[in-house]
């Protein structure tokens, strides 16, 4: 790049672009979270609903105390509801991020030197922080209302729930980019419910439905999150107990991560080429 003669009277020298790109901007993260937390919809659906569902499904005196691996059934339900809440949060963040990118605000950001990496990193972090709210609420309720398990089951499941949720922001991104409408992103809540049923989150599946569900995106994630509790066994009274190997669950999560990532990448390319 040749040195340019300074334009007539630029008051201040242009800020030199820094060489290294930050993968995250704390200011942007703070403001992104502020936006979300000012929205009552966030509190009701992303945070409140999973907590409510846990209280409804996980504290029934009939079976909450039934033992399940390294803990009790209340904890089994608690992990599932936390995972459901976390995924709802990250899918929503991903979907809205895609919309922002393709709609007016994306043009506004396009006028700044903001690097793609910083933007993606900040949005991913936003998703994880937002996801941690329902997760912490559900785990707190579990602690207070009778979920029991070993320390390994508590911490191991918590880690998997939080880390694994971020892959679903890719699903939200893909939906947002693919449909590009507010309605599509609003409908992701319904998509998560369907995936939740297929992922054995709300109700124990069996038979053919279970055989199919094993290939659905949330199955591997929730199975992995419960692994520290159950070592892969599932039994909730309906039908015989069954076992999923760690390998199968990891394969499920890996394949879906790659698939979501590829689709999102293709859609980003498509959006770019339209510019």
């Amino acid at each position: 790049m040749t040195a340019l003669p300074a334009p007539a009277a630029t008051a201040v020298p242009a800020p030199a672009p820094t060489g290294r790109v930050a993968p995250l901007s704390p200011t942007l993260l703070r403001l992104e979270l502020l936006r979300l937390l000012r929205d009552p919809v966030t509190w009701i659906f992303s945070v409140g609903l999973p907590g409510f569902l846990y209280v409804m499904l996980g504290t029934s005196t009939e079976y909450a105390d039934v033992s399940a691996g390294h803990g009790n059934l209340a904890m089994f339900v608690m992990i599932a509801m936390a995972a459901y809440g976390a995924v709802t949060a990250t899918v929503g963040v991903g979907g809205r991020a895609a919309l922002e990118r393709t709609q007016g605000w994306g043009r506004q950001l396009g006028l700044t030197p903001l690097a793609d990496l910083t933007w993606v990193g900040t949005k991913a972090a936003t998703g994880v922080v937002l996801a941690s709210l329902p997760v912490l609420l559900v785990y707190g309720l579990g602690l207070a209302l009778g979920a029991e398990g070993t320390m390994g089951a508590w911490l191991g499941s918590l880690a998997v729930v939080l880390v694994g949720a971020s892959l679903f922001s890719l699903l939200g991104l893909a939906i947002g980019l693919g449909f590009g409408t507010d309605q599509a992103v609003a409908a992701t809540g319904g998509v998560v419910v369907v995936l939740g049923f297929l992922g054995n989150v709300f109700y124990p599946l069996s038979g053919v439905l279970l055989d199919i569900a094993r290939f659905s995106p949330m199955y591997g994630y929730v199975g992995l999150a419960r692994y520290p509790l159950t070592d892969g066994w599932t039994s909730m009274g309906a039908g015989p107990a069954f076992h999923d190997s760690l390998g199968l669950l990891i394969a499920n999560v890996s394949v879906w991560t790659v698939l979501f990532g590829l689709v999102a990448l293709l859609l980003v390319r498509r959006a770019r080429s339209r510019q």
């Binding site: 800020p15 820094t18 936006r35 000012r38 929205d39 043009r107 506004q108 700044t112 903001l114």
Partner: peptide, 27 residues
């Protein structure tokens, strides 16, 4: 821009701080 959305839930000051944070030169 002629068309360009702003983020409705942020204040004017926050919007400017957001966009300033998008400039590495304004760290």
């Amino acid at each position: 821009l002629q068309t360009g959305g702003l983020l409705p839930t942020l204040t004017v000051g926050e919007t400017l701080r957001y966009l300033a944070a998008c400039h590495p030169g304004l760290a």
